[in-house]
Amino acid sequence: MHVVIGSTGSVGREATEQLLAAGEKVAAVTRDPAAVLPEGARMVLGDPSRPDGPTALPDGVESILLSPRAVGGATAALLSLAADRGARRVVVLSAATVVHPAGERRFAEQFRAVEAAAEESGLAWTFLRCADFAANALAWAPQIRAAGIVRGAYAAATSSPIHHRDIAEVAVRAMVDPEHAGRAYVLTGPQPLDQRDRVRIIGEAVGRDLVFQELAPEQIRQGMLAQGLPEEIPDRLLGSLADYAQSPGPSTDTVERLLGRPARSFAAWAADNAGAFEE
Rank of each mutant, 00 (worst) to 15 (best):
A135W: 11
N136K: 15
N136G: 10
N136Y: 15
A137S: 11
A137P: 14
A137T: 14
A137H: 09
A137M: 15
L138H: 04
L138G: 11
A139N: 13
A139H: 13
W140E: 00
W140R: 06
W140S: 09
A141T: 03
A141N: 07
A141P: 08
A141F: 11
A141K: 03
P142R: 02
Q143A: 01
Q143N: 07
Q143C: 07
Q143G: 11
Q143L: 02
I144Q: 10
R145L: 02
R145N: 08
R145E: 12
R145W: 08
A146E: 09
A147N: 15
A147E: 11
G148T: 05
I149P: 14
I149V: 07
I149T: 07
V150F: 00
V150R: 00
V150S: 02
R151I: 05
R151F: 08
R151K: 10
G152Q: 14
G152F: 00
A153R: 00
A153W: 00
A153C: 09
A153G: 05
Y154I: 15
Y154A: 10
Y154T: 12
A155E: 11
A155P: 08
A155L: 14
A155S: 12
A155G: 15
A155W: 01
A156D: 15
A157L: 04
A157N: 09
T158W: 02
T158P: 00
T158Y: 03
T158L: 06
S159M: 14
S159E: 15
S159H: 14
S159D: 09
S160L: 02
S160E: 01
S160W: 02
P161T: 00
P161L: 00
P161K: 04
P161W: 04
P161H: 00
P161G: 01
P161I: 01
P161F: 01
P161N: 02
P161Y: 01
I162C: 09
I162S: 09
I162E: 03
H163R: 08
H163S: 08
H164D: 12
H164I: 12
R165K: 14
R165H: 13
D166Q: 14
D166S: 04
I167W: 13
I167G: 11
A168Y: 01
A168R: 06
A168M: 12
E169F: 13
E169I: 10
E169Y: 05
V170I: 05
V170R: 06
V170Q: 06
A171M: 06
A171V: 05
A171D: 10
A171H: 07
V172E: 08
V172W: 00
V172I: 05
V172G: 08
R173C: 12
R173W: 06
R173N: 14
A174P: 03
A174G: 06
